[in-house]
């Protein structure tokens, strides 16, 4: 293949008529990879070129999982890179609400389809306030806000729908059904490929979940974007009533507290004595107090630390 041909083909790709991009995001255990495999195999059976690329490192600890699926618009169309550039995803499927919000910049601004499950999986690091029953710092965007921003948006409570169907783990299949309404493949092919991937004995429930998701899009409703989701949590960073008492004359500038503070809210001042640089970031976790060899830091919780234990 000559350089000219490659350049010509690359030009054609940048004209972005040739590749369809589906970005699937979620957290560990939700079935992101399974959906992307179904989609990729389906594209193969249709004779299309397809590339799939995923990241699932910390999945078992509730970490982020995402999968890029790119396939040619028609047989023979090439797929060059396995990853989707920012702003070029035709469809963004989010199994988890905050992940969907986070990946929005990848969605094509003018024609992108946004499909999101409104269920919330709140990661441990969103629990900035370590008090019991404190509000976590989680995405505050509501489904109506987001769906209003994209060209075509569906936010459905797939987790609850799957539970009503009899198996909460079929939520990803519901979203796959929702996706199928946006892509131009025959329904029978979808179902046969799906059957190859689901565990033995769950074929029937997955088929019903798939059809439920597909019908959900096509069912006329007054406001398709608003399926009455769970209300978004309002507080992003709650103020925590913590006071750091620093005994300046005891500090020996050893730097342990500054480097080991999980919120990085301490630093050394011009006299090399520790100070609280960012009082709002301090969560009162006491690590600086415990690890100060010179007892220069004392953490005081102005409000009782554990209200229920008093």
């Amino acid at each position: 293949m000559s350089i000219e041909t490659i350049a010509a083909e690359a030009d054609a790709v940048t004209a972005d008529a040739l590749t369809r991009n589906v970005l699937i995001v979620g957290v560990g255990g939700q079935g992101v990879i399974m959906i992307s495999k179904v989609l990729a195999l389906l594209c193969q059976t249709q004779g299309l070129q397809v590339k799939q690329s995923e990241v699932h490192g910390m999945a078992k600890r509730g970490g982020v999982v995402f999968s890029h699926v790119r396939f040619g618009a028609k047989a023979g169309d090439p797929v060059w890179s396995p990853t989707i550039p920012m702003g070029e995803a035709d469809v963004l499927i989010a199994m988890e609400w905050a992940e969907g919000v986070r990946w929005l910049p990848f969605l094509r601004a003018d024609t992108g389809v946004f499909i999101a499950d409104t269920q919330q999986v709140i990661p441990p690091f969103a629990c900035r306030n370590r008090d019991f029953f404190a509000e976590p710092a989680y995405a505050t965007e509501t489904p109506s806000e987001i769906v209003g921003q994209v060209s075509d948006g569906f936010a459905l409570d797939a987790g609850r729908m799957a539970e009503e169907l009899g198996n909460a783990r079929a939520a990803n299949t519901i979203l796959l059904g929702t996706l199928s309404a946006s892509l131009d493949f025959p329904l029978d092919d979808w179902l046969s490929v799906l059957n190859q991937f689901v565990p033995k004995g769950t074929e029937e429930i997955n088929r019903r979940a798939f059809l439920l998701g597909r019908d959900w899009v096509e069912t006329p409703r007054e406001n398709p974007a608003m399926p009455a989701p769970t209300p978004a949590l309002p507080i992003a960073r709650p103020g925590i009533d913590v006071r750091l008492e620093i005994t300046r004359s005891w500090c020996k500038s050893c730097d342990i507290c500054v480097k080991l503070c999980p919120e990085r809210c301490l630093d050394l001042d011009d006299q090399q004595i520790v100070r609280l640089k960012d009082p709002d970031a301090c969560t009162g976790c006491r690590i600086c107090e415990w690890l100060c060899p010179d007892f220069a830091i004392a953490v005081h919780h102005e409000t009782p630390e554990r209200p229920h234990s008093a």
Binding site: W250, K252, C254, D255, I256, C292, P293, D294, F295
Partner: peptide, 17 residues
């Protein structure tokens, strides 16, 4: 007697705590 005589960053202070 405070601050104590240990060097900056010495782990003995943490053990004492």
């Amino acid at each position: 007697l405070m601050p104590h005589f240990m060097c900056p960053g010495c782990g003995h202070g943490i053990a004492l705590r």
